[in-house]
Amino acid sequence: MSEKSWKEISIGAVCWKPSTALLTGDWRTYTPVRDPAKCTRCLLCAIYCPDGAIHWKPERNDIEFDYNYCKGCGICANECPTKAIEMKLL
């Protein structure tokens, strides 16, 4: 068992791992796929994403889907003003 004993953990039930270690992307059924040609980089998808799974990369002036966390809810596709995102069963 990988879990620690009571002597090995800090007192007070202080959390000792960030949830970013939990890859919730494996919950996903449909996957958002973007058409970069239609995308205006308005960032609405990144703002609305409940999972913080769409990152803005200023150095590339572009967004990036983080499929480690994307649960496939489809909010990004629903809200995209140019309909640049499609939910696909991959």
Binding site: S10, I11, A13, V14, C15, K17, P18
Partner: peptide, 28 residues
């Protein structure tokens, strides 16, 4: 204050302090 391990992987005094963020009272 005893020292505890936080989610940032650092050991910090056991208290709510913006200097060393930690999560207290979680669900276990």
């Amino acid at each position: 204050f005893p020292t505890v391990l936080t989610h940032d992987g650092v050991k910090a005094p056991f208290r709510l302090d913006p200097e060393h963020p930690m999560t207290l009272g979680p669900a276990a």
